[in-house]
């Protein structure tokens, strides 16, 4: 498992995951500086918000693409068959890949948080980076599950994008669905609302992760981090268990 984790991290480096994330962080910083220079006031806040938002999207995109392509490549290149022919449980492959991706996520989150230091206080940037790391862990785990399930880069990335978008926007959708002009007595609307709540219950609250408020509000309370860590841990375990179930049924 340790070997696989190291190999996955090496693959991330050779696939220029870190380099791409670095470029994305530089581009985000440039966009943040540009936005800050346009601001009449609160330039630091605007710069941090723009940079943080762009950098987070960039990090998520880079890691998701790597997680999916890495597993699909293993399948296509018969690397998965080679690993599974060894006297190790299939779950060891998953855990090894996941550990490597978690290390890559740690590197990305550290890099992005460091790039925010010109705009944000070190404590806020560190907490934001830790929260981003947890978000990236969930994304990597979901990418692992999608890749094992769909065995296709396009299908997996589409599913992952849908998962991420839903998890980030579900709070807004629920709020809109409870508006007082909503046709509350319509059976169709009621069924849709129940379905929405059902989906929401199965998704992580990604909208709580890496909040921009931590970067732009001086003295913002950072107390949400333990809850995020707990939720990320539980959800990651669920995703990995689902991936293990799917992998154990593959006739590799």
């Amino acid at each position: 498992m340790r070997t696989l984790a190291g190999a996955t991290l090496a693959e991330a480096i050779h696939s220029r995951v870190i380099a791409t994330a670095l470029l994305a962080a530089i581009a985000a910083a440039a966009a943040g500086m540009f936005a800050a220079s346009l601001a009449l006031t609160d330039g630091a806040g605007i710069g941090a918000a723009v940079q943080g938002w762009l950098a987070r999207i960039g990090a998520v995109f880079v890691l998701a693409t790597f997680a999916v392509s890495s597993v699909v490549r293993d399948t296509d290149d018969k690397g998965l068959e080679l690993v599974l022919s060894m006297p190790i449980p299939r779950s060891a492959y998953l855990l090894g890949k996941w550990a490597g991706m978690a290390l890559a996520a740690l590197a990305l989150a550290t890099l992005v948080a460091a790039s925010l230091l010109p705009h944000a206080a070190p404590r806020a940037a560190a907490a934001w980076g830790a929260s981003l790391f947890l978000e990236l862990i969930i994304v990597a785990s979901a990418g692992l599950l999608c890749a094992v399930t769909f065995a296709s880069v396009v299908g997996s990335l589409a599913a992952l994008a849908a998962f991420y978008s839903l998890a980030r926007t579900m709070a807004a959708m629920i709020a809109i669905g409870h508006g007082n002009v909503a046709p509350a007595d319509s059976p169709l609307f009621h069924a849709a609302t129940v379905g929405l709540h059902g989906i929401a219950a199965l998704l992580p609250r990604l909208d709580m992760y890496a909040p921009t408020a931590w970067l732009v509000t001086p003295g913002a309370e950072l107390h949400g981090l333990p809850n995020m860590a707990l939720q990320a841990a539980v959800y990651t375990i669920a995703l990995l268990a689902a991936a293990a179930i799917d992998l154990s049924r593959k006739s590799v």
Partner: peptide, 17 residues
């Protein structure tokens, strides 16, 4: 062929979630 442990962990983790 699916390990029961994996199913149990999935059910437990989802419930906790």
């Amino acid at each position: 062929r699916v390990p029961l442990a994996a199913v149990g962990i999935l059910a437990g983790a989802l419930t906790l979630h």
